[in-house]
């Protein structure tokens, strides 16, 4: 009896988690951190935007993310894509609140975070954000942003 209850509970939990995960995966969310000094990581900023991808060896979707962001770089002028190995930059990972890989941060020309996505970002969503007419339009607002 205990086993049957545990089985049904596990099936229900797995189903709910799968749906939630699918919905959130790769979606652009508002920025979490502002005022990070990108020169610390040696990141050169793009004229229109910079896509900073955090990757690790323990990460199958990082390669897919790399391909998606490389296509964004090709499609939208002035966009630079940078790949950072999370494991060897743990101080930055902590400061930027990176919880898992791949995480992609979208930065404006001044290096302020506009949005972030965990998992493989959706090409159309990233391109749509970057093609908004003015830099102010590209910002996804977050009331809980941590300022530094």
């Amino acid at each position: 009896m205990t086993g049957l209850i545990a089985l049904l509970a596990a099936l229900a939990v797995a189903a709910v988690l799968a749906v939630l995960w699918r919905r959130r995966e790769g979606r652009l969310r508002p920025a979490a951190v502002s005022g990070y000094d990108w020169s610390t990581l040696g990141v050169g900023l793009g004229e229109r935007a910079t896509l900073v991808q955090f990757s690790s060896a323990f990460c199958a979707p990082c390669r897919t993310t790399r391909a998606v962001l490389a296509r964004v770089e090709e499609r939208v002028e002035g966009v630079v894509h940078v790949d950072v190995d999370a494991e060897s930059h743990l101080a930055a990972v902590r400061e930027l609140g990176i919880a898992s890989t791949p995480t992609t941060l979208v930065l404006d020309p001044a290096g302020r975070e506009l949005a972030r996505a965990t998992g493989v970002p959706r090409l159309a969503e990233v391109v749509a954000l970057l093609e908004r007419p003015t830099p102010a339009d590209r910002k996804l607002d977050n009331p809980d942003r941590i300022s530094r």
Binding site: V13, L17, A18, W21, F58, A86, E87
Partner: peptide, 23 residues
């Protein structure tokens, strides 16, 4: 079982997600 089902159905590897938290 939850971890195995998530991995099987949507390819989500819970153990791998925990790795960076651990680091």
């Amino acid at each position: 079982l939850v971890a195995a089902l998530l991995n099987a159905s949507i390819g989500l590897c819970l153990g791998c997600e925990l790795y960076l938290y651990w680091l």
